[in-house]
Design a protein around this nucleic acid. Sequence first.
DNA 1: CTTAACCATCACTCTGAATGATGGTTTTCT
DNA 2: AGAAAACCATCATTCAGAGTGATGGTTAAG
Lengths: 291, 291
Amino acid sequence: MELSALGIFVAVAETGSISQAARRLEYVQSNVTARIQHLEDNLGTPLFYRKKRGIALTPAGRALLPYATRLLRLADEARHAVEDSAQGQGSLIVGAMETTAAVRLPSILAHYHQAYPDVDLTVVTGTSEELIAQALDYCLDGAFVGGSVVHPDIEQELFFEEELVFVTERRVTTLDALPQRTALSFRQGCAYRARLEHLLRSYGIVPYKIMEFGTIEAILGCVAAGMGITLFPRFVVERTAYRDQLCLHPVPADLALAPTMFIRRRDALRTRAMETFLELARRLASPTASG
Amino acid sequence: MELSALGIFVAVAETGSISQAARRLEYVQSNVTARIQHLEDNLGTPLFYRKKRGIALTPAGRALLPYATRLLRLADEARHAVEDSAQGQGSLIVGAMETTAAVRLPSILAHYHQAYPDVDLTVVTGTSEELIAQALDYCLDGAFVGGSVVHPDIEQELFFEEELVFVTERRVTTLDALPQRTALSFRQGCAYRARLEHLLRSYGIVPYKIMEFGTIEAILGCVAAGMGITLFPRFVVERTAYRDQLCLHPVPADLALAPTMFIRRRDALRTRAMETFLELARRLASPTASG
DNA sequence: CTTAACCATCACTCTGAATGATGGTTTTCT
DNA sequence: AGAAAACCATCATTCAGAGTGATGGTTAAG
């Protein structure tokens, strides 16, 4: 039972005649006859009574007709959906680090959704390492990750420059006399974690312990409670609920700035949904990045 | 875009691999490759990224997938609906005279619907002549009509024997001094109307005028109001709201009984819906008919 | 009584679905 | 490092079935 057969079936049922259906479909009459017969064989039951003049639906035909029309309409919708996905609408799956998703994306996503409400937008969060792997595996249309990615299949573009700061509890006003040797960070794979480890080592704070947490709030909450130190974008800390219980410490200038890049596979399809998303994101990102 | 192609597409999308889909479908791998390529050509856009190991959906493929699964499910439903229409469920379209529909069918229909709630039941009313024509034209699966139908394509079966009575307003106690020459009846084509004309002629009541009405209540209401005389099954008159304002007069014995036959085309499909309907109708009709 | 409309059947062509074999690439296992 | 396994693309080939055009039989309309 193929869609083309159902199309012929519907035409015959609607015109009430094989000949007229053939004319409407621009087929030869014998072909319409044959395909209806084939469909009847396939379903194991007659669909039409053959009258002296024209045809009439059998009970089985009556049962099939509404399904046939629904199937044809749905198939048409599907075709349009595929067409649209190459055009404006469709779906867009982007990855982002927790920190980017928390403070940089909300306004972009809101604007984008307002401008293109038909796009089915999904944001996946994860560590930069995970996001890169997923983008390479075509699971993501693209992702915001920390730091440059050098890979022949990946193309990237700078979107934000985050100023990184050490974050401690409020009472710790200087890092020189760092009372704890515990660092808090996201799980392995986070771009900032690698830098945090490097920086702590340069401060002579080794060996140290790294505790892993899954969310921004968990990390900063624990830091505020005096559990340890972490490295975060200033922008993120300034917007957290714990900001009054935290103290920010500058990072040496050469390691203070961390770029957030948007990456995607070079061979990923250039959908309009993606292009418009990037255009809008560039517009909204640039003043922040430069400021 | 045919259903078979969508089935292959879904299998590939679900297994994440052309080879595995081929194994599941019991096809050869090269065929699955070719049909996916054909589908992509057909839709004008790639549906899968080809990875080193396996494949991944493109945005267009993501857009198509939910439609494809819906289409396949719906097609399956359609197949079952057609199958069922040959079995128990399905639709049943029966015709009946107004009088039969009013007093004989309700209990049958109620019982039938209770026993087979999945059957989509339709009752079409009309004159016997109209119903016969529609049954011959395959528009009805069968019909209850007045009197025997002799036609090579029609088979019939006796269901009810109606006792016909003349009906006049209450004050007219004898037909001998019939004060009016007006008869009321359904429109031309009604089985009882022919008999009414015949009987009136035999009573010497010619010329007379026949007024046509569309419903039972209209006719009996007008008779009650003294407009004229009509011929109706006793059973119908006894159940009308006007019964107290009417007087019933016997009809000569040789013309008093009118059979109600169920007719259908000999070549109409023997659906289970129809067979079970007739079985139930026979059971419910026989005591009434004999009593 | 002719004409037109309708459906079934047949012989034929040709598209495209399916097979099987081959080659290239990558991953996995030893 | 080398062998084996998994995966996809391509090609030549076979075969089913979609579509054509012609014909014949039947019925309704003129």
